[in-house]
Amino acid sequence: MKEKIAVIADSATCTGFRLAGAEYTFSLSGKEAEEKLAQLLSDQDFGIIIVTERLLESCDWRLKKRIEATAKPIVVPIPDAQGPIEQSESLSILIKRALGLDLSKKRD
């Protein structure tokens, strides 16, 4: 079974992903976007939900927890037109905390 791809973002980003062939684009913001995200999360027909970072950041912490806990659909944050924002819980910080060593430094 094929799962669908959803995009929740500002209208420009939605148009861009539409051009790339994403079928379900929702150009929403604020409370409406949050509600849509929550609704899509419980919909098993969707495989991936693409959300802008800024939107995800402004979400309720309960919703964020739920996103963390669900394996399917996958929620992927993307940068919006204003560029990427610094994530407070970036991967390297998490890795450092869990394993006790900094992998990014070793690679250099």
Partner: peptide
Amino acid sequence: KRAPGVKV
């Protein structure tokens, strides 16, 4: 044309 879906 719509992109084919993904399989998760």
